[in-house]
Amino acid sequence: MKTTKYILLALMVICILGITFVPVLAAWPTQNINLIVPWSPGGASDLTARTLAVQMEKALGRRITVTNTPGGSGAIGTQAMFDAPHDGYTWSGNADGSIITYQCLEYLPDISHRDYASFLAVFTPNVICVPANSPYQDFPAFLEAAKKGNLTIASAGVGSSGHQAAEIFAAYGGVEYRHVPYQGGAPAVTATVRGEVDSVMQLSMEVTEMLRAKQLRALAVMDSEPLTIDGYGTISPITEWIPDFPVVGGRFGLFLPKDIPAEANSKITEAFIAASQSETMAKFAEERGSKAISLYGDEAAQVLEEGARLVNWMLYRAGVVKIAPSEFGIPEP
């Protein structure tokens, strides 16, 4: 009786150890991948990450599990990724606009936007929208009203893409506005629909549904070319009226620590290229008023660098960023 007891106990211990240490040998990837999305489910970051995950699972032959870790404007989940071993098995799904501000907003003071290997799959521009019953029929009328001051503009929160767009609009249009932050993109958009605020400048992905439902009217897209949304129509680019206006939008995709093993990096890049250029991704983007892109490596790093310079200095002048970005080695554009 006693011996059986010890044999059983030993077996249990072996089982536990076995499950723990088996996946050590063999070529990368040997484990399932944890994809942390530091935002709530259903948002643009989440949807992009999940669509990419399904496509990349096929190429990597491993399961990719999406974990949502919202909080701290996405900084908590991003920190969790950096805390995990940098072995290529922990990814994050986010947007360039958030990644570039974490350091200057002092959320992650030790992690620069240059510490990421970025894989950008979807570009969605910011769109200037007003409620369907708004008196402003076109962009010039809106700009004129904005110049008189005191227009209210909703956004998904301080430092969100809608806030950044509004700040850039204020700088290039030479206007002042009142910023009304909400708890995320969807509440900001619905508040605009019911006329609580004058305008919203969130990403086109977030307003497409309401545009199609004729609850919102789009006045201009912050891009250099027009944007066509199926079931709504074509939106003129803002550069028609303000020629030097920069391209403002979100680039969604995967962000990993830069110092993962080279083997993992090349496997992931390979899988990403296939996924981002797939038919599914193109269809996913088009349905949401966005464009499928495929940026990685140095090209993606360049996009982040330019964005970091523009946005952080803009937020610094607006008083949102308290420390001068040059302290973090980000030169003025």
């Binding site: 404007s73 908590i76 301080v158 932050p181």
Partner: peptide, 21 residues
């Protein structure tokens, strides 16, 4: 945690985890 309007960290003692609320 982070306040919903100004994103000011409340009662967080400088901890990132507490910032998430």
């Amino acid at each position: 945690g982070q306040d919903p309007i100004q994103a000011f960290p409340r009662f967080t003692f400088g901890s990132l985890q507490m910032r998430g609320g």
